[in-house]
Nucleic acid binder design. Structure first.
Length: 1139
RNA sequence: AGUCCUGUAGCUCAGUUGGUUAGAGCACUACACUGAUAAUGUAGGGGUCCGCAGUUCAAAUCUGCGCAGGACUACCA
């Protein structure tokens, strides 16, 4: 028995999901898709590693669908597409998870739990959810090789990182320096920005703030400030952290900000002063009402402070002006106490002049460095340079400082009074909030010295340590850096060659990020991560960066020989053996690497720098580390990637580290094409979170709907880079609208194909010999193939999906199938019918191929169901269909569009006068605009008449004399020619009479006079249409007008009855459970109004209902006879019997 | 605070190089169709194209200034 096209009872996409998964698993389809492309060009893809210590969410389905779509598409285009899965296993979230589950804090590490045990716990914990991830990956249909993933904690992975770090080191791109970082004195540790962004870290606090007076040194550059001035001149600068004032070494002004000089008095001492501040902020310090007060009448202590604005100047004229050190306890070593430009200075608060303490502010440090200003640093007893505050949060004690330094730079008498004071009371266990703070005492001192202009409490937002709940300090800390700034230009150049989707992320967010690049701070003071492979002697004179395990082994041997180490920690490791068994003998994590002490050339012991490196280095290194490059795959590294995709939040994360490392190590981009997708929000547009309970469980959605509607919805609802407001009803809509329609279309096809024994192997009817409507849908199909390829090629899956969906629902189902139903049922299996099957079959198969990347499950089933006997290949191994340009016929597409439009207009007219479509009508009339239009219409005439059940189509031409024409200006044509005259021209055209229009048409041009100018209007300047036919029922849409003859003759009425009868009989057949092919005997009870109609259309009725025997009977009382109403007041009885 | 994205019907989204009547689907209402039938079609209502200003003969579209939502980066006197 020959194969039949499977028929289904209903569409259960969830069940299809499961059965197709089983099929893939049984056949090893994914492996086959790689094997089948062996020797073909590669399409290189990098998988960004997710962290497996969290549950996968619906947003992961989004990112992975994009990746999967592109990879499957490229496979179908003949490329071999390897996809290696990966796991990101290091980093803070892992540590936090472990600490939570073990119930410990960082302080316990090394005490209650050893570092080795802790790291062991991390190693185990990080893979906690891998099962879930693998499960989701499989169910959603994401094809990626999970059998051989790369894992960032693997020793071989780390070894590649070490090699890379050494390469950077050799190029001089790895260095140790300091930056200002958030630091918690209470916890004694630096904090990452990640930690500062924990909820609740930023709190409003009330601090003492101080506006200090910095006395201007009178010299050549500052002379203009002393012009016409009877007092000393001061800069005013505001700070919320007065304890940083002793570390002040500069003042910053905004170069384009306007400043003023104000003559007034110090409110605390009553001394006459002249102060400088931003013009916009005068109002914040002086009451406008006091501007007129007499300066001479002022008495110290008066509430009302008189002032007088002397003059104004720009910030740039102030730069370079010197001032006296405000609190001269300690001298800086270098240039200081100068006004410098600061790009970030605003006039929103303070005075518009910013106090700069380079040791306590990141911006401060940056602008000071640019201007060549020295920071205020101290030398401790160990010879290390320190800020004025030590790591416990207090001013350094003099006894802790280097003697020579104290002698040279410190005013011991003045400083002693404050040495040892904590900068925040929270750091000193003996103090409470009630006690006077250092800020207060300093401010009081400044008041007395005529150096404070205003002191007040101020509420502001300040970060706190999430562990100790105490305020953080911004503090200079030693760190290792990658000198990314050295390669900035090259990175920008290479970035310009990358195809970003959307483009703005590449040029905007990423491009701007590169422009403002700072060096990459690699250091992290943690336990679970890739250790920095740098060993140093204690005095810093000797240093070695290790680039491989083998090199480490050799150095260890030296160290053992020199007696620096007792024994070799990894004696069994065999260099050159890259098996996992060999690498399992070692551990490159802490604490093991910390225990290794190396020896310098001159015999000094060297200890490892305790830092771990940023986990982003791990992920950015994946192109090389996943292949254990260069130790393995030295000459076959797949690089750079043709394509990557990840969330837009990775711009400064993975995208940057990939790009930076690719540029610095290989002078190459790391990826050529990239899609950065937006977020998945809930349906109200809020961020999804477990806490709010609005997170969508991907497993449940897939179980309920299957993956295909979910994937389709995600790809087509919005562009991937726009945020997606995830709404389950949208998934449901996709299921009904797209998959439901496609399924129905296939069901229709298989039902009749099986009845007729269509196999799909018959010789093709040449397209040229197929009917107009077949050639039309084939034309559209080829246009679709072209458009979909273009969309995929441009990394725009949304456009591809929308185009496919539109074709299926609108053109294929709603028009092609609906108009062709009669060709499929009944009648002989002739060439016309064969053409219909072949056309529909080809459309369905092509859709399956085009849509397979997005909806891999259903398209797999559909494609296989459509294959002729003996062919069972997967759609995912098949090649994409080629577009056949010669089959695209735009003229045909145009006239079919006319047919659709006219049909819909006629149906609308019928509705208006309540005449059913089953009732035939005699005539429609269409005004003909030009010869081409007539020809186009003639070709689709039968389709229209059939669809709207009308007998004839009449073309109305000039000669018939019934046309009423109207004329409209064509702005697109007129605009460029006459621009300014447009309005009067439009009015003139509107005023044209029927005669004018006729004259215009016959002459081919028309002259109008507008504003005294004579103009020649040409045919393309206007649109002439006929939108009314007097005395007829008329519809008008755009250029097309249709009139309908609604008189119903006796003939027409009888034919209408016949069709009504057929309809009732068909219903009865169906209700009686008859098969589509069953023949019947039919009885109709006589009825005066009907008999003639039945006799006249006997053949028609019989053939439509498969009635081999039709009898008109006087009384019909067969069992199963029913009464039917054909129109109101017209009833009869019919009966059928299966033969 | 900076950079970027988004803002069009009740909801989700289209809207070409600016062209004068701004579209589709869903939802809603009414009607029709009926051997694709747990389907389908037709029609209808529904718009301050976020606001203001500008450029232009002409702006949803271009420019500027705002507003709202979101993301990232930073956290500053």
């Amino acid at each position: 028995m020959s194969k039949k096209f499977p028929e289904y009872k209903g569409l259960d996409l969830s069940a299809i999901n499961k059965s197709v998964l089983k099929l893939w698993e049984g056949e090893g389809t994914f492996e086959q898709s790689l094997k089948a492309r062996e020797g073909q060009p590669s399409f290189i893809f990098f998988e960004g590693p997710p962290s497996a210590n969290g549950m996968p969410g619906i947003h992961h389905v989004m990112a992975r669908t994009i990746k999967d779509v592109i990879c499957r598409y490229k496979t179908q285009k003949g490329f071999q597409v390897h996809r290696k899965a990966g796991w990101d296993t290091h980093g803070l979230p892992v540590e936090l998870g472990v600490e939570k589950s073990l119930g410990i804090t960082k302080e316990d590490i090394g005490k209650r739990i050893s570092v080795a045990e802790y790291n062991q716990a991390c190693r185990k914990d990080v893979m906690k959810y891998t099962d879930m991830w693998e499960d989701l990956t499989e169910k959603m249909g994401y094809w990626v090789d999970m059998e051989h993933p790369y894992i960032t904690y693997d020793n071989r992975y780390i070894e590649t990182l070490w090699w890379m770090l050494k390469e950077l080191y050799k190029k001089g791109l790895l260095y140790k320096g300091y930056t200002i970082q958030p630091f918690s004195p209470a916890a004694g540790t630096g904090l990452s920005t990640h930690e500062l962004n924990q909820p609740g870290c930023y709190k409003d606090v009330k601090d003492t703030t101080c506006t200090a007076q910095f006395k201007v040194v009178r010299d050549e550059t500052s002379d203009f400030l002393y012009a016409d001035c009877d007092t000393e001149v001061y800069f005013l600068a505001w700070t919320t952290t007065p304890w940083t004032l002793p570390s002040n070494t500069a003042l910053a002004v905004g170069p384009s900000v306007t400043y003023v000089r104000v003559r007034t008095f110090n409110p605390y001492t009553g001394e006459p002063v002249t102060v400088v501040l931003a013009k916009d902020l005068v109002g914040a310090y002086f009451n406008e009402k006091n501007a007129d007060l007499d300066l001479d009448a002022y008495q110290a202590g008066d509430k009302k402070l008189p002032f007088k604005v002397l003059d104004e100047f720009s910030g740039s004229t102030l730069t370079g002006v010197r001032y006296e050190q405000l609190i001269p306890w300690i001298q800086p070593d270098g240039d200081a106490f100068r006004v410098i430009p600061g790009d970030y200075v605003t006039t929103e608060d303070g005075t518009g002049i910013v106090h700069i303490a380079p040791t306590f502010g990141a911006d401060d440090d940056r602008v000071a460095k640019v201007a060549g200003i020295a920071p205020l640093v101290l030398m401790d007893r160990e010879g290390k340079r320190q800020p004025m505050v030590d790591r416990s949060g207090k001013f350094f004690l003099i006894k802790d400082l280097d003697d020579a330094f104290v002698k040279q730079f410190v005013d011991v008498k003045a400083y002693s009074e404050f040495a040892g004071r904590f900068v925040k009371n929270a750091y000193d266990a003996s103090l409470s909030d009630e006690d006077a703070t250092l800020d207060v005492d300093l401010s009081v001192m400044l008041k007395k010295e005529n150096k404070a202009f205003r002191v007040e409490k101020h509420v502001h937002n300040y970060p706190h340590c999430w562990r100790t709940d105490k305020p953080v300090l911004y503090y200079p800390l030693d760190s290792w850096f990658v000198k990314t700034t050295a390669m900035r230009e090259r990175m920008m150049e290479l970035n310009n060659t990358i195809n970003w989707k959307p483009e703005s992320t590449g040029t905007g967010r990423f491009g701007k990020w590169l422009e403002n690049l700072v060096d990459w701070n690699l250091s992290r003071s943690r336990y679970w991560g890739t250790p920095l492979p740098v060993w140093r002697s204690e005095d810093g004179s000797a240093e070695v960066c290790i680039g491989s395990v083998e090199e480490l082994m050799q150095e260890v041997d030296k160290a053992v020989k020199a007696g620096v180490m007792d024994k070799h920690p990894f004696p069994d490791f065999k260099p050159g053996d890259f098996s996992s068994a060999n690498y399992d003998k070692i551990d490159l994590h802490r604490p093991f690497v910390d225990d290794i002490i190396l020896v310098s050339e001159d015999g000094k012991p060297m200890y490892r720098e305790l830092d771990l490196i940023d986990v982003w280095f791990d992920s950015g290194a994946m192109p090389y580390a996943q292949m254990h490059y260069p130790f393995e795959n030295k000459d076959s590294l797949p690089f750079p990637a043709d394509f990557i995709a990840e969330g837009v939040d990775q711009t400064r994360g993975w995208f940057f580290t990939l790009h930076a490392l690719g540029t610095m190590l290989f002078d190459s981009v790391a990826f050529k094409n990239i899609i950065s997708n937006g977020l998945v929000l809930d349906k109200k547009g809020n961020k999804m979170s477990k806490r709010l309970g609005n997170a969508v469980d991907p497993f449940k959605v897939i179980e309920d709907y299957g993956s295909d509607p979910l994937r389709w919805y995600m790809m087509t609802n919005a562009q991937p880079w726009d945020n997606l407001k995830f709404d389950l009803s949208g998934v449901d809509e996709v299921k009904r609208k797209f998959f439901g329609t496609l399924y129905n279309t296939y069901s229709f096809f298989s039902l009749y194909a099986n009845v007729d024994g269509f196999k799909g192997t018959e010789a093709q009817v040449p397209v040229a010999e197929r009917p107009e409507i077949d050639r039309w849908v084939i034309s559209l199909l080829n246009t679709l193939v072209k458009d979909v390829h273009a969309a995929y090629d441009q990394y725009e899956p949304t456009r591809a999906g929308r185009a496919i969906q539109d074709f299926v629902t609108e053109n294929l189902s709603n028009w092609y199938v609906r108009l062709n139903r009669k060709r499929f049922w009944g009648g002989a299996f002739n060439q016309d019918k064969l053409a219909a099957y072949q056309t529909l079959h080809q459309c369905l198969e092509t859709v399956a191929l085009l849509a397979a990347p997005i909806a891999p499950f259903y398209m797999e089933q559909l494609y296989r169901d459509l294959q002729p006997e003996g062919q069972t290949a997967s759609v995912h191994l098949a090649l994409m269909p080629e577009v056949v340009e010669t089959l695209i016929d735009k003229g045909l597409e145009e006239r079919m569009a006319y047919a659709q439009q006219i049909s819909s207009m006629v149906l609308a007219l019928r509705r208006k006068v309540s005449i059913k479509v089953r009732q035939p009508l005699q005539k429609i009339m269409v005004p003909i605009l030009d010869a081409r239009f007539e020809a186009q219409l003639e070709a689709v005439k039968d389709l229209i008449l059939n669809e709207v059940n009308v007998k004839e189509l009449e073309y109305l031409k000039e000669s018939t004399g019934v046309l009423v024409k109207t004329i409209k200006p064509n702005f697109k044509s007129l605009g460029p020619k006459y621009s300014k005259l447009m309005k009067p021209i439009a009015a003139a055209i509107g005023a044209m009479t029927a005669e004018d229009i006729a004259a215009f048409e016959s002459a081919g041009s028309f002259s109008v006079e507008v504003n005294g100018e004579k103009l020649q209007l040409l045919p393309e300047d206007v649109e002439i249409i006929s939108e009314d036919i007097p005395g007829w029922l008329v519809a008008n849409e755009g250029r097309i007008t249709v009139a309908l003859d609604i008189t119903i003759s006796e003939d027409l009425r009888q034919e209408g009855y016949a069709r009504e009868l057929v309809n009732r009989i068909q219903n009865l057949r169906k209700d009686s459970g008859l098969d589509v092919t069953d023949k019947i005997r039919l009885q109709i009870q006589r009825h005066a109004a009907l008999d003639a109609a039945v006799e006249k259309h006997r053949t028609y009725i019989s053939s439509q209902t498969l009635a081999d025997d039709l009898q008109l009977v006087d009384t019909c009382n067969e069992s199963g006879a029913i009464s039917v109403e054909l129109e109101s007041e017209l009833e009869t009885i019919i009966a059928i019997e299966k033969l």
